[in-house]
Design a protein around this nucleic acid. Structure first.
Length: 458
RNA sequence: UGCCUGGUAGCUCAGCGGUAGAGCAGGUGACUGUUAAUCACUUGGUCGCAGGUUCGAUCCCUGCCCAGGCAGCCA
């Protein structure tokens, strides 16, 4: 009976007649027998198989190098040596697939840069496999969080026809021949001849559609792929990433911030509880202060300040920032870093940003110069959540849309939400990969994504 | 896209205006309930690409390509 390494290592008593299948991490030869470390991806740790050279199939051991796949029968017994509680005393050894000396992964540590050159093989490393296991576990934790609170999981379209959702450059979706697109009489491309009879793009956010569903189901969330065609060359931007976007009817900015904080904490706690070995690994090899930071985040309330207070603190800091701090200007990365890493040493939720710097749909505050927006900033990564209370007053929303130069006709459906039974509502977007960066301590979004898509790389 | 740094063996790196080095990986042998095993020996390179300076360039200069970091845009 095949058993996963994870279950074998968790055994309470010896197990006979089991089969373990996986990939060889390393082989050590002794007189008359060999140690073969087998990893099957079910957990971080390997199972040490002890293969007597007289056992059936052991003659293949000579070609068993790091990377080979094997399947072994045997008996799980207490290990007489230090280093592991259990080991597998092998009764039959089978080499399933050889890996010759050109296998690029070694027993030694590799740089993240090198691993990115072999995306199809790097998941066989402790580092990438751990991040993918965490990713899987935390994806489920997202659903646990919202389902326990009565949110409906909704699927908003990946293909959108709004060409200005306000969150950046879009990827075009078309079936037209790029070399010879149909033309209108005026020489421009005739998009009416395209597949959707108009221009179409990949979504940059499901927010606007989620708002319509929240105004029917109450509390909803999306969790799916998001696409941005910005030429962002940084360690924390990807062209394709996953975003979690809750949208809550009858909710204000305070409730929005509460939800975001609870969600981040829930995910951090889930990681601490479900993936302790992975986190120990990241703490040891990727980010020395990781565990301490995560425990603090799980226990302590996030600091909550307004944009205006943030500006005052930054001005009073006496720091010679490269970008001067000025009310009305966006907070720069260096400012966010100072707030989270130096001033408060933990997550900071900043709210009430200047209206001029924010999109049309955010609710205008009574001071007439700020909007009910909020960002959650965390040490090391920066912004992982961006959200707001939405403008539910039809006249205010229309005015804001005009001020942003939007075509009101194209957003008639969005305005209808305010025309028919409008309600205060709020939501936010949480970048899933950015959360994973925060939880793993990885400094590059490419290392928490199996197949990262970034400008120039797909 | 801008600025900065880098590109030398399969990997991680050292080196230097005078013809190429280490550790690990691979191979051979020894030893050993081993733990990134150990020890000895050993295979392995157009020094990113193209020009230029020079008696001579991996080294200096220019351009290009690639990677990383930082910044902007954001999640």
């Amino acid at each position: 009976m095949r058993i996963k390494v994870r279950d074998a290592l968790a055994a309470e008593s010896p197990l006979g007649g089991i089969t373990v299948s996986g990939w060889v991490r390393t082989r050590r030869d002794a007189k008359g027998f060999s140690f073969v470390e087998i990893n099957d991806g079910s957990c971080l740790r390997n199972l040490q198989a002890v293969v007597d050279h007289a056992v059936p199939g052991a003659e293949a051991l000579g070609t068993v190098l790091t990377g080979a796949s094997v399947s072994v029968d045997g008996e799980l017994v207490p290990s007489p040596a230090k280093g592991q509680r259990w080991e597998l005393r092998v009764s039959a050894f089978r080499l399933v697939g050889e890996a010759d000396a050109t296998f690029p992964l070694q027993k030694k540590g590799h740089t993240a840069e090198f691993l990115r050159t072999i995306p199809h093989l790097r998941a066989r490393t402790n580092r990438i496999a751990s991040s993918l296991r965490l990713r899987s576990r935390l994806a489920m934790a997202v659903h646990e969080f919202f389902q326990a609170r009565g949110f409906a999981y909704v699927h908003t379209p990946v293909i959108t026809v709004s060409d200005c959702e306000g969150a950046g450059e879009l990827f075009r979706v078309t079936t037209l021949d790029p070399a010879a697109p149909p033309k209108s009489p005026d020489g421009s491309v005739d998009w009416a001849a395209d597949f959707f009879a108009r221009q179409a793009f990949l979504t940059v956010s499901g927010q606007l559609e989620a708002e319509t569903l929240a105004c029917a189901l109450g509390d909803v969330y999306t969790f799916g792929p998001t696409f941005r065609a910005e030429n962002s060359q940084t360690s924390r931007h990807a062209s394709e990433f996953w975003m979690i976007e809750p949208e809550m009817a009858f909710c204000d900015l305070a409730g929005d911030m509460d939800c975001a904080e609870s969600l981040v904490k829930h995910l951090v706690r889930a990681a601490l509880e479900c993936c302790p070995e992975e986190l120990e690994f990241f703490n040891a090899y990727v980010d020395k202060g990781l565990l301490e930071r995560l425990r603090l985040v799980a226990d302590r309330p996030f600091t909550r300040i307004t944009y205006g207070e943030a500006v005052d603190l930054l001005l009073a800091s006496g720091r010679p920032f490269e970008h001067p701090v000025k009310w009305g200007e966006n907070l720069q990365s260096e400012h966010e870093r100072w707030l989270t890493e130096e001033r408060f040493g933990g997550p900071v939720t900043v709210c009430d940003y200047p209206a001029a710097a924010k999109p049309f749909y955010m609710r205008q505050n009574d001071d007439d110069r700020t909007v009910a927006a909020m960002d959650v900033l965390v040490p090391g990564v920066g912004e992982i959540v961006g959200g707001s209370q939405r403008e539910e007053r039809p006249e205010r929303l229309e005015a804001a849309m005009r001020a942003h130069g939007l075509d009101l006709e194209a957003y008639r459906w969005y305005l209808d939400l305010r025309r028919y039974g409008t309600v205060p509502h709020a939501g936010f977007g949480l970048g899933f990969e950015r959360l994973l960066m925060f939880v793993t301590g990885e400094g590059n979004i490419r290392d928490v994504t199996a197949y990262p898509r970034t400008p120039g790389h797909a």
